[in-house]
Design a protein around this nucleic acid. Structure first.
Length: 289
DNA sequence: GCTGTAACCTGTCGGC
DNA sequence: TGCCGACAGGTTACAG
């Protein structure tokens, strides 16, 4: 599912419920996600208070009051949903079985009465528990690139980051070691906004015409992310907000999943789909050069 | 170190 | 209706 806007939408939905709450019980219903759960995962969480919920790239980080952090990644199909607990005694977990759904892998019961459930059909997501002081050097974060919505990511910074890479620009935009947070949808959308072909090499951001392209692309990245976050992310197959509401940004795609349709620009052509790095790229071959 | 590819797992959709 | 293959928003391991 999620790229940065979807994860940020999830964070904004979860934060008011999680921050300040104590974790009373954790039920791991299926432990074999892409990355195995750490030892004693549930026991180490129970009794802990969540101080703050923040985001780094596509990761959610719940800071705990014991100096550890619960790290979660939604993979391709992960989601959280919030429900209120049933009255005490309704069942052992205050969470009626009838309300559990297929692929509900972890259930958190909080001191404020909320029940937060992690669901992930494809099980590409992960959950980990790490000391806060070691987060930056952990395997999840040590090689991550810059945040794409950072104001400091302007044209020159983008060119400096990517200009030495020989891979296609679209592939480089999705490389989390360079820019952490963009994915397949928003890389295509940002390139359309910048009128740059996804087939150009990343080196096109340096040299002749490079600074201008880099400035347009940085602007395109910032704009598309800001608009997508405002719209609650994009809901295609899996993504929903924590209250079940769907995001709206999929209605604003200029190129993604629009193969064969007319470009939104008057001087555009017909949207094409190509495969780059094993994944679909959508672009207008006429207005993106 | 860089690049491309396959694999992880499950659900959905289109074609036959 | 049922089967099969392709494909899906991410990440990592591995080969060249």
């Amino acid at each position: 599912m999620p790229e940065l806007p979807e994860v940020e939408t999830v964070r904004r939905g979860l934060a008011p419920v999680l921050e300040g709450a104590r974790i009373e019980a954790v039920e791991v219903r299926r432990p074999d996600l892409r990355v195995p759960f750490p030892p004693r995962f549930a026991a180490r969480l129970e009794g802990r208070k969540i101080v703050k919920l923040r985001r780094r790239a596509k990761f959610l980080i719940a800071e705990l009051d014991d100096g550890n952090a619960l790290v979660a990644h939604l993979g391709m199909s992960g989601s959280f949903r919030i429900a209120r607990a049933a009255p005490v005694g309704a069942d052992a977990f205050h969470h009626p079985r009838s309300r559990l759904e297929a692929h509900d892998h972890v259930v958190f019961r909080l001191s404020n009465g909320a029940v937060v459930t992690f669901n992930d059909p494809r099980r590409f997501g992960l959950m980990d528990l790490l000391p806060m002081a070691e987060l930056a050097e952990s395997r999840h974060f040590r090689r991550l690139g810059v945040e794409p919505d950072a104001k400091s990511l302007d044209g020159p910074a983008l060119a400096s980051l990517m200009g030495r890479r020989k891979v296609a620009l679209k592939v480089a935009l999705c490389d989390q070691h360079l820019i952490a947070g963009l994915g397949n949808i928003y890389a295509s959308e940002a390139l359309w906004r910048a009128r740059i072909s996804p087939r150009r090499a990343a080196t096109a951001l340096v040299g002749r015409g490079g600074p201008d392209r880099a400035a347009r692309l940085a602007k395109g990245i910032h704009e598309v992310l800001a608009e997508a976050i405002k719209a609650g992310g994009s809901s295609l197959r899996d993504h929903a907000q924590v209250d079940g509401e769907l995001g709206e940004f999929q209605h604003h795609f200029a190129v993604y999943d629009r193969e064969g349709e007319k470009c939104l620009r008057a001087d555009g052509g017909t949207i094409r789909r190509i495969v780059q790095g094993g994944r679909s790229t959508f672009f207008c071959p006429v207005c993106q050069r």
